[in-house]
Every structure is written in structure tokens, then in C-alpha cells.
Amino acid sequence: MTIQTSFPRSGSPPPPPAGNKSLRLALYRLRQSPLSVIGLVMVVFILFAGVIGPELVPFPEDATGNTRMEARLTAPNETYVLGTDDVGRDVFSRTVIATRTSLVISLVVLAIAMLIGIPLGAISGFFGGWVDEVIMRITDIFLTVPALLLAMAMAAALGSGMVNAMVAIALVWWPGYARLTRGQVLSLREREFIEATRALGGGRWHTIFRHILPNILSAVIVKASMDIGFAILVAAGLGYIGVGVQAPTPEWGVMISEGRGLLRQAWWASIVPGVAMFTTVLGFNLLGDGLRDILDPKTRR
């Protein structure tokens, strides 16, 4: 029973559409939260920019160490809509191209992190005992140290570059997925349908892969959608420091780092890539926040 207070509460929402199609229900719930719709629109726009943007920009050749000294440090005008940097490259073109770099990095990072974390978490939760103990202590160690610091050490050790940055970040990112999966598996393990599977003679691995993993999908999706933004931030942090993606590859962190030295002459060189990064991360966070409300029954109002 809910207690009536004089505090403002939302009016009761209109009843959900008839039919029990889960997709329709999800879409209906998504529409109930305008912020997640905004997030979805932003994400679609960003994906669009990342996938075909680099083919549409006015100066695709600026993705390299191309120079155009006669146009250096040009303030935003009709030709260079968001100005140029200290060697005359178009900031707008580079920012758009960098969208692809960041999306690729964060998607690869999350894919590797999931490939390591989910199986380990499932094993940990399903088998329990000393296996669980060992795996969980290892995740403890990783989760104690801030991801950026550890990724920085890893990236420095592996050597700079995009691939190494991805590996470094993924290596510190998997424990989150291991923990999440373990928790989910622990709660699923005792459920009747799992018991039934076992009773019908389903082997351990069969049970894990066919019955448990598909059921933790929504929790993983929610976490991943929130993590994309954070992975972008960490990757850009590495790029900014100089141990991640290297110039002249267009990457937001690298661009901000280069533009920082030009703050007095050309503020746009560092501000524009930052706005793009902020928009991207915010879009994914808005969407992730909405998805959590939709897919996680615990936070559902």
C-alpha cells in the first residue's frame, strides 16, 4: 500500500498498450521517459556521424598530418565552419572523423571486457567455492585501483597506440562485468527453471550457456550502454596524456591536448572536440539511464 502524502507525485500514466510483446512494451516505456528518447536521438545521430560522417566532411584529407599553413589558426568562417588548428587543418572535419575513432575504441574495449568478464563471472557464480573466491579476489584487486591509473600504467608498458590503448583499457574493465555476471548468476542459480534444466540432465556448461547467460542479457546491456560513455572518457584521457592514440590520428583527447597550447590564439581547437565528446557521452548516459528504468525491474517505479 502506498502512503498518501501531500508531496507531489506523478499522475498515473496511461495504461500500457494491449498485447504482451516485450518489444512493444519496451518502446512504450521508452516513450514514457522523454529524456531517454532525447538520449536515443543523440546516440542515433552520433552513430550516424561515426559511420558515414567521415565520408561527408568537407576536408577528409585532414585526418592525417596534412598541413595547410596559409589557413592556420583561422577563426570559424564559411570554409572552415569551426576554425582550423595550428597547421591549418579543419577542426570540424577532424572532430567528426574522431567520432569514429572513439566509437571503435569503446566498442572494442567493451567487447573484450565482456568476453573476459562474463565467462569468468558466470563460472565464479555457478561453481562457487574456491574458484569463486579466487576470481573474486582478482576482481577486487582490479577494482581497488582507479581504472584510468591502471590503464595508464598498462598503456605505458604496452607502448602507445590505438590497439594497445584498447587492450590496456579492456584489461582493467572486465572485472565490472565479472562482478555483474556473478551476481546475476547467483540469483538465477536457485530458480526453478534452472533446477528443471539440471533435473532433465542438462550439463553444467549447457546450463550456463543456454539458460543462464541469455537471462542476464538485459543487465549486461544496461551496463554496457552506461559504460560506452565512460570508456570514451578513459580512452580520451589516455590520448590526452599521450599514452593512447597518437597524433596525427584524429581523436578527441589528442585534439584537446594539441588545442590546449593554442588556447589564447584559437580556443576552438580544444573546445570543439570537447563539446563533441561531451555530447556523445551524455547521449549514451541518457539512453543508458532510460534503459535501466525499462529493463531493470528493481528501479521501475
Binding site: P8, R9, I256, I271, G274, F278, N285, L286, D289
Partner: peptide, 27 residues
């Protein structure tokens, strides 16, 4: 709750965790 100040606070909170802090520092 659920009125405008709450919505603004929600956007604000998400915005604040989305800002790259090194970029904000430069700004």
C-alpha cells in the same frame, strides 16, 4: 519529484558525469 526541478536535476547529474573533467578544466 517528477516535476521540472527534478527533471533538471536529473539532466544536470547525467551532464556532470558526462563532462570530460580535463576538458572542463580547460574551459
Amino acid at each position: 519529484r517528477d516535476r521540472l526541478p527534478d527533471q533538471i536535476s536529473r539532466v544536470f547529474s547525467l551532464g556532470m558525469v558526462s563532462i570530460p573533467n580535463f576538458w572542463l578544466a580547460i574551459v
